[in-house]
Amino acid sequence: MQRLILLLIIFMLNCFSSILAQETYSITIDFSGMKSDKGDLYVALYDSEDNFLKNPVKGEIVKVNDKKAVAVFKNISSGNYAISAFHDENDNKKMDTKIFGIPKEPIGMSNDAKGFFGPPKFKDAKFTVDKNISLAITIK
Rank of each mutant, 00 (worst) to 15 (best):
G59P: 00
M95L: 15
L20M: 12
S26Q: 12
A21I: 09
N51G: 01
N75V: 01
S77G: 03
I29K: 03
N90G: 12
G33Y: 12
Y25I: 00
A69H: 08
S78C: 05
V64H: 07
V64C: 08
Y81R: 11
I19N: 04
C15H: 09
D66P: 10
K54F: 06
P56A: 00
A21T: 13
N14H: 10
D50V: 02
V64T: 10
A82C: 12
E105I: 02
G39R: 04
E49A: 13
P106N: 09
Y46L: 00
Y42F: 11
N90D: 15
V72Q: 03
K98S: 08
Y81K: 10
F16R: 11
L41P: 07
S77R: 09
L45V: 02
D37N: 15
K67S: 06
N75H: 12
D37F: 13
P103S: 03
G79L: 00
P106Y: 03
N75T: 04
S77E: 05
V43I: 07
L41H: 05
K58Q: 10
D88T: 04
S18N: 14
Q22K: 15
L20A: 15
S78F: 03
I83L: 05
F31P: 08
F31E: 11
A44N: 13
S17Y: 13
S18Y: 10
K63H: 11
E49Q: 15
L41F: 11
D30L: 14
N80S: 11
A21F: 10
D50F: 00
Q22N: 12
I83K: 04
K74I: 04
Y81Q: 01
I99P: 03
A82F: 12
K63D: 10
K63W: 02
I76F: 07
C15V: 15
S26F: 07
F100E: 01
F16Q: 11
M95A: 08
D96S: 10
N92C: 06
E60T: 04
S17D: 13
K104I: 02
L53Y: 07
S84Q: 05
D47R: 05
A85P: 08
V57Y: 00
E23H: 13
K74A: 08
S48F: 01
S36C: 13
I27D: 01
K104N: 09
